[in-house]
Simulated scan of single mutants.
Amino acid sequence: MPTTDPLARRYRRLLRWYPRDWRRARAAEVMALLLDTAPPGRTRPTARETVDLVRGGLRCRLGRPASFSVVAWAALATVICGLFTGALASRAAWETSRPQPDRAEAGAILTEVFPGHDLGDIDVPPALFVVYGHALTLRTVKTVLIGDGGEYQESATGATAFGAPPVPAEQIIAVARQRLTDAGWRLYDPQVSAYTGCTDKLCATPLPITDTTLTARRGDTILNASISTQTAADASYLAVELHRAPPPAVVPAGVLGALLGAVAGFLLFGWASRRTEGRRVSGAATFLFGVTMVLWWLPVLLTAPSLVGHHLDEPHPAWHPLWEWLGQPTASLLFLVGAVCALLALGLAAEPRRDRSPVALVD
């Protein structure tokens, strides 16, 4: 029944943290207790009451008051659901990006930074993200989901110069760095790697070769150039790629998607936990959920540490997309199997239950 008492209204809003079945069975009793113990003149719940009611409501939504592990499982489900939905939202936000540089834009940049070098034809990708150089289509979706998901990545506009460098590699690097700086590009520390090449098939005369990678960013455009000291006529001494940085909408979309996904994941887990509590299907649902968590978390635990090291070892004008930190779509098969297990567990929870025992109050 509506009330004009501000304290009662605020208590009633706090009790919405509890599941609906609990509110039907216990809300009136708890409301009466809260109002009876409140001193005269109070219009707001205390901070401690607010925290206790929110904490109690969240715990009650999980059911199984005697279980300690349910809280840990709920946390795992909440976080991973938030990460997956955040990754999906950030991928959708990538569609606000400008297309990769076309031949005119790329040609102007290459002429400005690498004058006097024949970079041949400029290769313009067909889409912002590609699989083996091709746009994602119904035919290539199978390749991404089952097999070569790691080949799904941001495309780049590229050009390559073959043969022996017309000038020493050190001069190419120095000129390029100076021209990039003069044109307003932000330069990152160059990465240098050395290896031994061969001048013939038998490798009778080993040849030391040095590759230097230049990375620069201007606006939303990122340049990666690899300059080699090799002199073979059929190998490249200069390769340049241009691609776009993540658009501004990616981060807020990812954060918002992660928050909404985390809330949805927690509520769905709590609903399934309460629905299967004390039922014969509880063991099967718990097993299916455990398999889901293992299959979803395993790629994250294996991929995230390696990406951290990768980012620390090399300059990155832009971080790798969120889905790559989750091991996706490289481990998309594991994700799909986990999703099937999750749907089966939810199906068991959705089966009508014969008993309608009151929901226990969680202290």
Rank of each mutant, 00 (worst) to 15 (best):
V167M: 10
P358Q: 06
R24A: 10
A176T: 07
D200R: 01
D36I: 01
P208H: 09
E241I: 01
G309V: 08
G254T: 03
P39W: 02
V359P: 11
L207C: 01
L333P: 11
H134A: 15
Q191D: 14
L348T: 09
H316L: 04
W325G: 01
D148N: 12
A27L: 00
D123L: 13
I122F: 05
W271D: 04
F129Y: 14
D121L: 11
R44S: 06
R13T: 05
A32I: 00
L110H: 06
L322V: 09
D121M: 11
A8V: 02
F162N: 07
T140Q: 12
R91P: 03
G257E: 10
G116W: 03
A38S: 15
A66L: 13
T330N: 09
T276Y: 00
F335M: 13
G338V: 07
H316A: 05
A360W: 09
P45I: 05
S226V: 14
R354V: 06
A27Y: 06
Q153T: 10
L302D: 15
L34D: 08
L58V: 07
I80H: 14
H316F: 10
V362I: 12
W17L: 05
L333N: 09
R10Y: 04
D234H: 03
L298N: 11
D234S: 03
F114Q: 07
R98M: 07
I222A: 01
A258M: 07
A104I: 15
D313I: 00
E277H: 13
M31Y: 00
Y195I: 00
L223T: 02
L53Q: 05
L260N: 08
G327N: 12
H134I: 06
A127P: 13
C203S: 10
R61I: 02
R12E: 09
A285Y: 06
L312Y: 06
T4K: 05
D355E: 15
L187S: 03
F84M: 14
A75W: 11
V141M: 14
F68S: 13
F84T: 09
A183K: 10
L187W: 00
C198R: 01
T4S: 12
G86R: 01
P39N: 04
H310K: 08
D200N: 12
V51P: 00
P252Q: 01
R9C: 01
F129V: 06
L214R: 06
H320L: 09
W323P: 00
D200W: 02
V337G: 05
E49H: 04
R23Q: 09
R12T: 11
A156Y: 11
A174S: 08
